[in-house]
Every structure is written in structure tokens, then in C-alpha cells.
Design a protein around this nucleic acid. Structure first.
Lengths: 205, 205
DNA sequence: GTCTATACACCGATAGAC
DNA sequence: GTCTATCGGTGTATAGAC
């Protein structure tokens, strides 16, 4: 009624996810306890169970939220499918690197903690991850059909390019040698090399 | 049976490392308990402390053993430093991929469990990992000096190439689409693309 | 070299007061 | 919505018998 206790719930929920993300990214899912997360939020351990049925669901929700946001972000700025594959590849690489620099923690978790999901949860997350890989694979196929890309093996090139780009989140630091946009530009260049195509003029340095 | 009076310490030591490697690769360091490892070996948990002062040293020894073996294996078959950089790059890529397919578990652990090392142990392992990266970096520098490689940024190309190649161990399966030597050949091709050089004749398909 | 037994802290999760 | 208290179980690591 006159209580305002309901307003604190959503705020706490966000703090739980934020704290869990930070701690899991730093120490790993198995190494982080519910008590640690609760301490970080400033509540007791039992209170966490108002927001998640169990510990693993917390992990799954972080991963699913990340991958859904990744896919939605791409969908919101995806280039016209009728554009040349080279332009679409550049857009995809820029999107991927920028996103992985900006949201390194959730990217890291979604990549490293897959083995902590049970069978059903793994299948759901894996499906989302695959559909993201397919975006790149389709661009590479289009480029080969246009004759502008000359990769030998589309699936392997996709996996290699994703691995190469995602690796950025394992070493990127805000105070590193290169600013983010310089890193992105260099990765665009390397992606074109991998695909066997000539980089766009404005992507070259 | 009260005890295995005839059993050998060295044999048990090897079994402990083997079991720990398999379990940690599968479930992650933090998720594996000393009791689990002991059960796998067929001893009691307390007996493990005959072979390691604590749990983390078990992890560090697996990592250090892996990286030392990696560096020694390369040293044993490293090409003459006076050979052209292109030949040395091909040799390095073949070595790296073959090794990472053959010893996927230890490779996986050494890349995924770094955060479970304390400061001193991390520094020791990181030093070994760096010296491995420097092998590739030196080859790329030589190739640029020879004029056969045309990468824009040596350090970034090194990191990208290592990430691309090491990614193999995250998806490789014995019953996969391609046999190991076909995978290796395709990665040699992609490495030359990344370095901005022409592949050797015998590496092309 | 391996065992049994155990210390004792911490785990995930639940129950019920307020 | 958050608290305290608590359950049953497991964690790493050690002590001392044989």
C-alpha cells in the first residue's frame, strides 16, 4: 500500500546481474559463491533467490541476455543484404570488435563458461551462438559468389575469423597501446586478408 | 584391501596428473575437487598431497609442464634461423596446429585457467606463454624485413594469428568433417593470408 | 606410500520472522 | 523484500596409524 518496497526490487535485480557478471568474469562461475554475489550487492545470500531459481540460471540468463542483445544490436544496424559483401564484411567486423571491446565481461563469460551449463541450457545458448556465426558465414558465401572473396573453406574461415576477432577481449585494456578505433581498423584489414579480398579504400590506412 | 603395498609412487604421480588434466579440461579448475581427482586415481583425497603441496600447484604444474614441453618440442624441430621466413612460418603453423590438436586438453587448460593462478604462478606461466608468442613474432618481423610479408602491425598480427590457430582446440573433434592434415594445410594458407605473404607452392592446394 | 579419521570453513538452497 | 537461522553436504588440507 503505502510501502515503497516494490521499487527496490527491480533495482536489486539489476545489481545482482551486474555483480554476478563482474565476479564470474573475474573468477569463473564455479569459483564464485552466492554469498560473494550477495555481499557485493549488499543483501544476504537468501535474498538472491527472489531473483533466480538457482545459481546456474543466473549464468544462463547472463549468457542469453548477452547473446540476444548481440543479435538485436546487429539486426538494428545490419547493412542492406543487397549491398556488396565487402561492405557488409567491414560493417560486421567493426560491429564485432567494437561490441567485444565495450562488453568484454559478458563476451568473456559467454565464451568461457559454456561447460557449466547443463544439457538444455547449453543447447539454447549454443543455438544463439550459431546463429551469430551464420551472419558472418553468409557474408563470406555472398562474397565468394560475387567473386570478391577467395577463401578456400568457408566454414573454417568463419571459425578462424571469429576466433581471431574474439581474441581481442582476452587482451584488450583501456590503457593499452592502441585506441579502440585503431584496433578495429587493423582487424578490418586482417579480416579482408583472411577472406582473400581487397579491403575497401576507406578501411586501408 | 588396506593398501596397495606394491604400487609405485611415480606411477601414481602420473595418474594424478592425467586425471587432473582430464577433469579440469572438462569441468574447469574450480569445479573439480580433490576428492574427485582422488576417486579417479583410486586413492583417498589425502594421498594426493604426497604429490602436490596444494590444489593450485597441481594446476600450475600442468600448465608449466605443457608450456615447457611445447617450447622444447619447437626447439627440437625448429627450422634453421637462416631459412626464409616463409618456410619458417609454414613450419611454425604446422607445428602449432598439430600440437594443439594432439594435446587439446592441456592447451585448453593453459588458456582457460590462467585466472585461477595467484600472482607469482601467473607471472611464471605468462612468461613462458610470451616466449612462445615471440617465436612467431620474430618470424613475422624477419618476413617483413625480407619483403615477403606485408602485415600492418606485427604485434596485432601475432595475437590474431595465435588466437585464430588456438581456436582449433575449441572445436576440433576426431570424428569431424576434416582430417587433421587437411585442417593444418588450410590454416597454413590462412596464416600466410594474415601475414600478407604468398604461400609456398607446396602449401597451396 | 597409502590409509582412516577428522578439523573446520564454506557451499547452495530453504523456512519463517518481520 | 530482506533478514536470520539452519539444513545437509562438500571443500581443502592435516594428523597419525600401518
Amino acid at each position: 500500500m503505502a510501502r515503497k518496497s516494490g521499487s527496490s526490487g527491480e533495482k536489486t535485480r539489476a545489481m545482482v546481474e551486474e555483480a554476478a557478471t563482474r565476479l564470474i568474469a573475474r573468477h569463473g562461475f564455479a569459483a564464485v559463491s552466492m554469498r560473494q554475489i550477495a555481499r557485493e550487492v549488499g543483501v544476504q545470500a537468501g535474498a538472491l533467490y527472489l531473483y533466480t531459481p538457482d545459481k546456474q540460471s543466473l549464468l544462463k540468463d547472463i549468457m542469453r541476455g548477452h547473446l540476444q542483445h548481440l543479435l538485436e544490436s546487429w539486426a538494428a544496424q545490419a547493412p542492406d543484404p543487397d549491398l556488396p559483401a565487402a561492405a557488409r564484411l567491414e560493417r560486421f567486423v567493426r560491429f564485432h570488435i567494437d561490441y567485444h571491446i565495450l562488453r568484454a565481461e559478458k563476451v568473456f563469460i559467454s565464451y568461457m563458461e559454456l561447460r557449466n551449463l547443463d544439457c538444455d541450457n547449453f543447447a539454447e545458448i549454443e543455438r544463439l551462438r550459431r546463429s551469430y556465426e551464420h551472419i558472418l558465414e553468409e557474408i563470406l558465401i555472398s562474397g565468394a559468389a560475387e567473386g570478391v572473396f577467395h577463401h578456400t573453406d568457408t566454414r573454417l574461415t568463419t571459425l578462424a575469423m571469429i576466433a581471431m576477432m574474439t581474441g581481442v577481449s582476452t587482451w584488450y585494456r583501456d590503457d593499452g597501446r592502441l585506441p579502440p578505433d585503431a584496433i578495429t581498423t587493423r582487424y578490418v584489414d586482417m579480416a579482408f586478408r583472411l577472406a582473400g579480398g581487397e579491403p575497401l579504400a576507406e578501411a586501408a590506412e
